[in-house]
Design a binder for these strands. Structure first.
Lengths: 330, 330
DNA sequence: GCGATCTTTGCAATCGGTTGTATTTTTATA
DNA sequence: TATAAAAATACAACCGATTGCAAAGATCGC
């Protein structure tokens, strides 16, 4: 910038104003400076600007996938969320720093904020970290969490309507006459519990005689595979599986087929997320679409609002059922 | 930091040295400062430090997925690569900025570098941007590209051995007696051309009478699906498909099955990448494993070497065939 | 016990912008 | 033409760390 100042014969403060489109600069002067800047390929030094302006035009996204968490980053859900958030942030000229903590206790998230590397943080999922999120203190002003709506949260939450998602699945299964449903997932996780509650709500109080069995599985496909095999070997009969994610559903289908069961004739299977591959794989997967792209946009909009000091409240994004007859037969 | 200086009664220069483990500070003084820093939750201001040190401890990763590129970020390959690079960078205490250019001509990559937001750049894939990569000029000192080894590249390349990958597939198909092979992909892309060449090399000069047909498809699953349908309706017969990515292979399988063809009895299918879901989906997919995790590590190591001014050269990561009998029948 | 040497600490410049305020130049008004 | 108002530009402080160099304090040898 001092180079540009010398070239154009004005003070660097004028160069700075010209480059930032300030109305305090004469039109001709501004054009001249802009031309020189273009010719010399000048780019404003972000480090200096960040220091002076006390901001970094960067958001952080925290993906809680550490060794031993039984979920890895290649779960398409996370990856589609990263894409959605990145694209939304770009619209505001924000860059995105991605952070994968190495352990549940790591405080890399706060580090990003306190050190000023990021102006705000998007945390994907609250499982196992609710306490820590609640103790963010003033840092909470610059954090938005993706997750199921829970009472205990005093931080800003954005998430899809997990209860409604579960309800839609329940309704659909009921419509196609399935009554012995297995819920595959870990209901200790807030989002999963809400889906389970939604499923259960369908049969509340009516005369049917459904049975819903909970089979616990983390979000790891291999665990779901083993659990489903065990299920097949057990005494309980069932005609449908509602899995807490598409990855789990696909693993379950694989396990069922390896036991000679037909999908959907013997067992209907429904997943959750509608990941990009869900439609492409065979059999195509019936699932709940969380609209991750919209979710990412709302996360970013909400966070930028918070950074600007505007009050925001928790947001639910809509949820819809995507039926592919190959897994639910109807 | 000036706060810490006041608290501990020393100059901020001493605080700085203590926090950075300089041997120029008395042991007791250092302990005292560290204790205070811990108690007050102090974190070094990265903005100021970056400005002064002329570095940002941040790498950028550029994923060339723009509207109209017929490939979207949810291709698990990209996403697994992001994970691998992010984890490798974390080992060196580097953060990772992810950049998704909006158009092929966008210069966001240079912007990250010139503005100092990133110390170096990892570019995933060189398709359609070879010229621009070649014109990086001195910026090339801080750029590493993931892609197939091509002569024209005067920038640093890291990639898996695409020729060998193609050769392994060809050999395998030959071993199981398939001779009318369809190559599904776009051989105008350097990486894909190498895979194709590897495939062709298997039959060079020997007495067999194979036919290899090239069916062009971008990396978009829907296009591969349509192309495969067209193939089934065409006059040419074939008993194997080698697809340039797992996403394409899965789409092709889906298309074949919708036409009543059996995989692998009628048509064997092989993919490329070994994405995490490849093993889980049914039928499990035979494919080439590029070892993305290792690739990500090498990318980061190489880039950090370059940033440090060390000379580096192009690197090939190994490639291996992963056979799942459900798609190749043997 | 005193100069020489080694530790430890402080001072001040620096990184490259942004921005409040002062100053100069231009334009408008009387 | 003199003067007030407006526009354009320059000056200088500031953001919060790092680091070369000078200075102060501690230790040592003789």
């Amino acid at each position: 910038m001092s180079g540009l100042a010398k070239l154009s014969g004005v003070d660097i403060s004028t160069v700075s104003r010209a480059l930032n489109g300030s109305p305090l600069v004469n039109g001709k002067t501004k054009d001249h400076i802009l031309k020189l800047a273009h010719e010399t390929g000048y780019a404003i030094n972000a480090r200096a600007r960040n220091l002076r302006k006390q901001s970094s035009q960067t958001l952080g996204i925290v993906i809680p996938v550490y060794p031993g968490s039984h979920q890895n980053l290649s779960d398409p859900f996370f990856l589609e969320m990263i894409a959605a958030v990145s694209q939304a942030a770009a619209k505001f000229d924000y860059d995105l720093i991605i952070n994968l903590p190495n352990s549940p206790s790591e405080i890399a998230e706060r580090r990003l904020l306190l050190s000023g590397k990021a102006d705000g943080l998007i945390v994907i999922g609250q499982a196992g970290r609710i306490e820590r999120l609640r103790s963010l203190g003033d840092a909470a002003d610059r954090v938005v969490v993706w997750g199921g709506m829970i009472e205990a949260a005093d931080y800003t939450l954005v998430g899809s309507d997990n209860f409604e998602g579960g309800r839609l699945v329940g309704e659909h299964l009921k419509n196609i006459g399935r009554h012995r449903v297995v819920f595959l997932g870990d209901i200790d996780l807030p989002e999963v519990e809400l889906r389970y509650n939604g499923l259960m709500s369908v049969w509340n109080g009516d005369g049917a005689d459904p049975s819903v069995m909970h089979v616990r599985s983390s979000f790891d496909g291999h665990e779901a595979y083993r659990q489903t095999l065990g299920l097949c070997e057990g005494a309980q009969s069932f005609d449908a599986i509602f899995a807490a994610s598409d990855v789990l559903a696909i693993a379950a289908i694989h396990a069922l087929q390896s036991k000679g069961l037909r999908v959907p004739e013997d067992v209907a299977v429904v997943g959750y997320d509608n990941i990009g591959q869900a439609a492409m794989f065979s059999p195509g997967l019936t699932t709940i679409d969380q609209n991750i792209t919209l979710g990412g946009e709302i996360l970013v909009n909400t966070l930028i609002d918070k950074i600007a000091g505007n009050p925001v409240r928790a947001t639910l994004t809509p949820t819809k059922l995507v039926i592919r007859s190959s897994t639910v037969g109807g």
